[in-house]
Design a protein around this nucleic acid. Structure first.
Lengths: 194, 194
DNA sequence: ATAATAGTTTAACATTTGTTAAATAATATT
DNA sequence: AATATTATTTAACAAATGTTAAACTATTAT
């Protein structure tokens, strides 16, 4: 297992748990590559999320409808995992929607195959736990930033951490992610011009 | 294993993974009960977090210093798990501090014992994953609330979900948790009086 | 190339939240 | 009981963000 396409996911996985070449074969058989065009939907509202995705290329957004308006909670950074977790873990209809902000290449695995890996190889269960721990820590960091930082600081940090994201993702979604309105972000950007 | 003291933690655990009486014995031997008086510290800044706690009684806060000021990111609800996760997972000095808002009774287990359970019994690793998944989902919910809701709505929901917490926890911490200043919370409470 | 659509900015005004400072209330300590 | 400490409220003013509506710009489809 090592065509170029798996380079990023292997690098990601090996941050958490050390897998040998052979062990990754079990994964390779379960994987499905999904190509999404911009605006195509990966997980639809009301549907049961049965796949988890690693973003090999492109950006996904996780959003839902709040008072008739679409609100983006998450923009998945390159080379990270995404799924509608509440739906995925409990196999209930998803209120979250996941779609492609840009053209995407996703490395996906479905729920039952993942459960199979978890049950058959403790190392995979460990990987699952380690990844979700990391996601949780990142989520907590974001909560801190909502509590202690102004929108301006949050924007500056995002700009620094993911300059490509701000180039490739419409500002509407960035604004949602930061927790402000598009117009406020625009004003804020203007004030930072000098 | 079933003195009254373990009732809540067993109930909590069994939501996620079904353990038999015997299987819980392995846990019982590893557990340490910690009693904290109000304001006592469970995990200190700079110290490596080597214990995880289940709050059997009382409320903990998770906070850190931001520009010289203490900011509470989390108030742990009754009967939930808490640790300074970034420190706990990587065994590096903690920037987060955890202390008792009220007198607390904690059921704790240390890192190496937990690792032992994880490695020896896949079911425990699964439990760890399921719990952290749930914590992550809750964390995401909170991010949604920062993005879409006003402080007033966040306060009302907290009041509804954890009425006891608002009775037992000083408003300063509630305000931090909601992402607003104490004075703003006070104003908001006044506006809700009628 | 032109028209349609999507993305971004601008501006005036409204609302929410922050800041500073003080007063009041509740609780803990001597 | 008196005093000190901690928690909460109040108020005036400042700053940040939201709202509404429109203009402008870039991109996509015909």
């Amino acid at each position: 297992m090592n065509p170029e396409i798996f380079e990023n996911i292997i690098k990601f996985i090996n941050q958490f748990v050390d897998f040998k070449e052979e062990e990754l074969i079990a994964l390779q058989n379960k994987i499905e590559i999904v190509q999404l065009k911009k605006n195509e939907i990966f997980i639809q509202e009301g549907e049961i999320a049965d796949r988890i995705a690693f973003t090999n290329k492109g950006y996904l957004k996780v959003y839902y409808y709040h008072e008739g308006e679409e609100i983006t909670r998450d923009i998945t950074p390159l080379h990270s995992f995404a799924t509608a977790l509440p739906s995925f873990v409990s196999q209930t209809p998803s209120f979250e929607i996941i779609s492609a902000i840009t053209d995407c290449e996703l490395i996906t695995i479905n729920k039952s195959d993942l459960e199979y890996l978890y049950s058959s190889f403790p190392k995979w269960e460990r990987l699952g736990r380690r990844i979700i721990e990391e996601m949780f820590v990142e989520s907590q960091r974001r909560i801190y930033s909502f509590i202690t930082e102004t929108a301006e600081t949050r924007y500056k940090k995002l700009l620094k951490q993911y300059p490509d994201m701000i180039r490739d993702v419409p500002l509407k979604y960035i604004a949602d992610f930061l927790g402000i309105k598009l117009q406020s972000l625009s004003r804020l950007r203007k004030s930072l011009e000098w």
